[in-house]
Nucleic acid binder design. Structure first.
Length: 724
DNA sequence: AGCACGCCGACT
DNA sequence: GTCGGCGTGCTC
């Protein structure tokens, strides 16, 4: 009787042994259903064993091995094991969280009816044999030869398609139907692009990590496309990671137009379970050439992977903030190394970690310095000193003049303000009281809803009606304080009654398709002034935009988070890149009370290298990443002292180990946002000089932490944390 | 994580 | 006298 070692979705760092008659090597990586305690669980076979340490009498037998699905490949299991180990997450919980949700259900889900069909090789071979009198069949075959046929367009052919599906002449098309039959034209390469491509081509085959550094508009995408083209031509697959779903539709279309014959899929958390399963299955079967997706796509099982691209590699959304807290960028680099293939990390403002890796020669840097359109020059960045030119309702006189200019010339402007809602707070003019969220350590944000106002907490979602009088002193003189996108929109409407204004933030762009519609409106010049949060900074071209105004940027400079400046710089570079793309020079006006700040100087010079050098110098002095490696033990409880006491015990339990491994344990502190939804959060920082030391320490330490009583609290470990 | 077992307060 | 509170301990 064989014994299989099964990974289960339980928070225990161990495998469970089961008897499985007739199980063999071919079952490693297969889904199983096993009895577990009083219930049944879905698991994954990860090893075979001759004997078990568990007494034979306690071993139960597997209920079923799912052989309908190909086993998860060894490479994938290895990748998942790495992630589990590196991010200190139980292997079972890791593996099961990486499967499509549908496969975690006990009842192996039936693959849903396809939404489109393609001809199989067998189907193609069958075509000549179709009876010439069977007109409908001939027509259908002809149509299928032109490409995938969506069921929605199949009309009366539906029955025939189902029949052919059963005979194997057609199959479900996981890949989106290619739009044009002929690939879109390849633009001519700029010298920088050509040089970058030449460098990659000249490198010996195998693993290499490339940092493609180029400002917005310098044509990074074209470099990706050429490299993908070569990978596809060599019969390999390409995996392209992008930060967020908003980005996928247009990137998706660009890729499909360029590689109409490639089988392309998109993978992100917005997909319905059935769709996600189908796409996954297609990858597992090797029926996909090009995968475009958000962070979770880094774990797609692919057997011919030849190239990985991580676009906007600095973006924080690559880091998962719960469960397995992985960084898709870092996992991608590991995967490329494991598969011995190249990986390209692209950004105008690389993460300082990445920049330093390039400086140390671990990654190789490729520079795109010029904008792809020769006539498009980098925008001039000017600072408006708000100590002199005091903004009224957020707008300085200089910014108003600049807006007037664009309106007069029929050009578009964008005002960037990273605060949604009407005003960040509602305060009492008599006593200074500010309405707090009763459940979080944060102020409630004033939102306008039609003619009415409401208070919302951006952390826990609490929605309340604004008080009529100050809850503290009874004064009726309550006022909005500061600016949000809604209020700015309102101010602009009074200031420029003739202007067409559009606000883009999470509140207006969250509806499906809303974002695309707004982008279209802007491109059709149905908008004069755009007001937006960071959502507008992400990879969208607005060709008629010549002015970008930045409001409220200083806030990040005062943040206690040591990465806040890095993020602000990236955001400002990105938003500046929106201005002046179609030959007209763009202008960026930043309102600030600190015009002498080095961040702004570097921004004016469009000099990332200078900014990075400054930041790295500071980081080195402070022994912050990338000059150290961190992990955060987070704890949350109903009371902060409970969380802090737990962390203190954890610290005591780790002191000896820490000394032994040369690792520093800091004192437990309340989190920057100490209370969210009535839960008090605290954290303990672990810092080490190298990844190795940190890793060596974390394993045994967490084992000890797991033994600590933690009845009324939840804790988790975050390796390479981004948020504090 | 679930789920059962187990020992102390207000109810048909 | 029971129903049920959630403390603690285990799951191959």
């Amino acid at each position: 009787m064989s014994i299989v070692r099964v990974a289960l979705d339980v928070p225990l760092p161990k495998l469970f042994d089961y008897l499985a008659e007739g199980a063999g090597r071919a079952d490693i990586g297969r889904r199983v259903i096993v009895p577990f305690g009083q219930r049944r669980q879905v698991g994954l076979i990860v090893e075979l064993a001759q004997a078990s340490e568990v007494p034979a009498a306690q071993l139960k037998a597997v209920i079923a091995i799912d052989r309908d699905l190909p086993p998860m490949p060894a490479e994938w299991l290895k990748l998942a094991r790495f992630a589990a180990t590196y991010y200190q997450h139980p292997l079972g919980a890791t593996l099961l969280s990486l499967l499509p949700p549908a496969l975690k259900r006990l009842r192996p889900p039936r693959a849903e009816a396809p939404t489109a069909y393609v001809l199989t090789a067998a189907g193609l071979a069958h075509i000549p044999e179709i009876n010439p009198r069977a007109k409908a069949q001939r027509q259908l075959a002809e149509r299928l030869q032109q490409g995938p046929l969506p069921v929605s367009e199949a009309g009366p052919w539906r029955g025939q398609l189902r029949l052919w599906h059963r005979t194997g002449w057609v199959e479900a098309a996981e890949t989106m139907p290619a739009s044009p039959a002929t690939p879109s034209a390849k633009p001519e390469l700029t010298p920088d692009q050509a040089a970058a491509l030449a460098a990659v081509r000249a490198a010996p085959a195998g693993f290499a990590a490339w940092l493609l550094h180029g400002v917005t508009g310098s044509g990074k995408t074209e470099v990706y496309l050429r490299l993908i083209e070569e990978a596809l031509a060599a019969g390999r697959q390409a995996l392209v990671l992008v930060p967020e779903i908003h980005l996928t539709p247009q990137t998706e279309a660009a890729f499909r137009n360029r590689f109409p014959s490639a089988r392309q899929i998109s993978l992100h958390s917005g997909l319905a379970d059935g769709e996600r399963l189908r796409v996954w299955r297609a990858c597992l079967d090797g029926r996909v050439d090009l995968v475009l997706g958000t962070r979770l796509a880094v774990f797609t099982p692919l057997n011919r992977l030849g190239l990985i691209v991580v676009d906007e590699e600095h973006d924080a959304s690559y880091k998962q903030q719960e469960g397995l807290r992985y960084s898709a960028r870092d996992v991608a680099v590991w995967r490329a190394r494991q598969l011995d293939i190249p990986i390209v990390l692209g950004s105008a403002t690389p993460a300082l970690e990445t920049w330093r890796n390039a400086a140390r020669g671990r990654y190789r840097r490729l520079e795109l310095s010029a904008r792809a359109h020769a006539e498009a020059v980098l925008p001039a960045v000017k600072l408006i000193d708000t100590r002199v030119d005091r903004p009224r309702l957020g707008l300085s006189a200089s910014l108003i003049r600049a807006l007037q200019d664009r309106l007069a010339r029929g050009e578009q402007s964008l005002l960037f303000i990273n605060r949604r809602g009407y005003a960040p707070t509602l305060y009492c003019n008599a006593c200074g009281y500010v309405v707090p969220c009763p459940r979080c350590s944060a102020h409630q944000v004033l939102h306008r809803k039609g003619e009415k106002f409401e208070l919302r907490c951006h952390h826990c979602g609490l929605l309340t009606r604004p008080p009529e009088v100050c809850p503290d002193c009874g004064s009726p003189d309550l006022r909005p304080a500061g600016q949000g996108t809604q209020r700015l929109e309102e101010t602009l409407a009074t200031q420029f009654p003739e202007a067409r204004i559009l606000r883009i933030d999470r509140d207006t762009a969250s509806r499906r398709g809303a974002f695309a519609a707004m982008r279209e409106a802007v491109n059709a010049r149905a908008v004069d002034i755009l007001v937006g949060t960071q959502i507008v900074t992400k990879g969208h071209d607005f060709p008629h935009l010549t002015l970008v105004g930045v409001l409220g940027a200083d806030q990040a400079l005062l943040s206690p988070d040591f990465r806040a400046t890095e993020r602000l710089f990236a955001q400002l570079m990105q938003v500046a890149g929106r201005a002046g793309r179609a030959g007209r020079p763009g202008e960026v006006l930043v309102q600030t009370g600190y015009p002498g700040h080095p961040l702004y100087r570097a921004l004016q010079a469009h000099d990332f290298a200078r900014f990075a050098a400054q930041m790295l110098k500071e980081r080195r002095e402070m022994e912050f990443p990338p000059f150290s490696h961190q992990a955060l033990l987070r704890a949350e409880a109903e009371r902060i002292d409970v969380a802090l006491a737990f962390l203190d015990k954890a610290k005591q339990a780790g002191l000896a180990l820490a000394r032994q491994h040369g690792v520093s344990l800091f004192d437990p502190t309340p989190a920057l946002l100490a209370r969210v939804a009535r839960r008090e959060r605290a954290q303990l920082l672990v810092q080490a000089g190298s990844r190795g030391h940190l890793q060596d320490f974390l394993g045994p330490w967490l084992e000890a932490v797991r033994g600590l009583p933690a009845r009324t609290l939840k804790w988790s470990i975050d390796v390479d944390p981004l948020d504090f």
